[in-house]
């Protein structure tokens, strides 16, 4: 005759199942920094982002394209700041609006990237990331590395190496 499970047995059994589930999803993950621009969500791989800075003063440098907003002073060093909205074909957020600056590196360069708001920083299992759809606009195809959903919102994952390299070559 099968013995009825005690309360402790049930708890231990549930805990074992929970552990088993954790093992099941123990697959490669990717850290992402998710941010908002023009009402849409985008992300950079966490390895490309050194730091997230709150609103800091941006010093204008004449002679640059409008998307190159100036320089910031980061603990005694300076970095350029690009406005990502314009590169992605979104309306440029005014520099006076609250925003965050991501200190990114890619393509052998580093620069600040101004975004409207950082939504989240999280680890995502790689199977949750879909390849870029063929319906992407032409100007996005080269710089999008994947697509996922977070909190039911689509998130476009961007390749910072390509963004910086293209920008350095005069594109964007």
């Amino acid at each position: 005759m099968e013995q009825e499970q005690s309360g402790l047995d049930k708890i231990l059994s549930l805990r074992r199942e929970a552990s088993a589930e954790i093992v099941n999803v123990d697959e490669p993950t990717l850290k992402l920094v998710i941010f908002e621009l023009g009402g849409e969500w985008f992300a950079f791989p966490g390895e490309a982002i050194r730091e997230i800075l709150p609103q800091v003063d941006i010093f204008f440098v004449p002679g640059c394209p409008a998307s190159l907003e100036g320089v910031i002073n980061v603990r005694g060093d300076i970095e350029s700041v690009i406005g990502l909205a314009e590169l992605l074909g979104k309306p440029a957020a005014h520099t006076a609006q609250p925003s965050s600056i991501l200190r990114g590196h890619g393509g052998g360069m580093h620069s600040g990237i101004r975004v409207e708001r950082v939504v989240d920083v999280l680890d995502v299992v790689q199977s949750a990331i879909q390849p870029p759809p063929s319906t992407l606009p032409e100007h996005m195809r080269h710089i999008v590395s994947g697509l996922m959903r977070h909190q039911e919102v689509p998130v476009v994952i961007l390749d910072l190496n390509r963004i910086f390299e293209d920008y350095h070559r005069g594109l964007g």
Partner: peptide, 29 residues
């Protein structure tokens, strides 16, 4: 006194811009 950050060096159209100075008064070209 700072050298031009790489993206500014690549994209800036001013002729003869060598670097930037950044102090309490702001930017000096």
């Amino acid at each position: 006194i700072y050298p031009l950050p790489p993206l500014i060096a690549a994209r800036n159209r001013l002729v003869g811009l060598r670097g930037l100075a950044l102090d309490a008064e702001g930017v000096t070209l």
